[in-house]
Amino acid sequence: MFGFLCSRVKNKLNKGLFCFNGESIKSLYFLQNPYHNRFISNNPTNQKSFTINYLINSCGLSEGKAISASKKVQLKNSVNPDSVLTLLKNYGFPKTYVSTIIEKHPTLLLSNADKILKPKLSFFCSLGISGPDLAKLLSWRPTTMRRSLGKHFLPAVNFLNGIVHTDDDLLRAITRSNFSVFHHPEKRLTPALKF
């Protein structure tokens, strides 16, 4: 609304329709200044609209799912989210899985693609899980990406290696558990193994 009013006043200023003592008023400079958008861009309503539009147009979410996801994340611009989507695309994630992952875990768009996400995706690829297979697993449990590489993934793989002994068995254990083995396997599996 404020932006609309500013544009109306600016048009009238340019046409000389606002007058005082026979001269057009030029003291409302801030309305002619293109930087008046700073008053608009910080508006939470506009940020929410941007977020919803981004989730629909860039992530492939339906309007309803985008509105629901926008309650969990608020995007200020497209720079970081674009880098996240580009990274997922470069790792061979199909669009349908990307949409599902973002729908379930929209705050992933705020992650640092190079420092946080890329090392984890590279780690999974080193285990033999990549492309659509990795995308499918992450679409089931996208919050796995919140886990620490050093504190969760590496210790979990070391623990599982002590049980299964072969790379194929390790891969099967990870994929069949839908990544749940990365959530403190020693607490989950040790009691079962003892039994």
Rank of each mutant, 00 (worst) to 15 (best):
F2M: 12
L5K: 09
C6P: 01
N11W: 07
L13A: 10
N14G: 13
K15L: 14
K15P: 03
K15T: 08
C19W: 09
N21E: 13
S27T: 14
S27H: 10
F30L: 10
P34A: 00
H36N: 12
R38G: 08
I40L: 15
I40V: 12
S41K: 14
N42T: 11
T45K: 12
T51K: 02
I52H: 03
I52P: 00
Y54T: 04
N57E: 15
L61K: 00
S62M: 06
S62C: 05
E63T: 11
K65D: 15
K65Y: 08
A66C: 08
S68C: 09
L75W: 01
N80H: 07
L85S: 01
L88C: 07
Y91K: 13
F93G: 01
K95F: 15
T96M: 08
T96A: 09
T96P: 00
T96I: 14
Y97K: 11
S99C: 09
T100S: 11
K104A: 09
H105F: 14
P106R: 03
L108K: 02
L110Y: 02
L110Q: 07
A113N: 04
K115S: 09
K115P: 00
I116F: 14
I116S: 14
K118A: 06
L121Q: 00
L121I: 01
S122D: 15
F123A: 05
P132L: 05
P132D: 12
A135D: 04
L137T: 00
W140N: 12
W140Q: 10
M145T: 03
R146C: 13
L149N: 05
H152F: 05
N158I: 10
F159V: 04
I163H: 05
V164Q: 03
H165C: 10
T166W: 05
D167K: 15
A173M: 11
A173P: 03
R176I: 02
F179M: 11
S180I: 10
S180M: 12
H183K: 09
P191A: 10
P191M: 08
K194F: 13
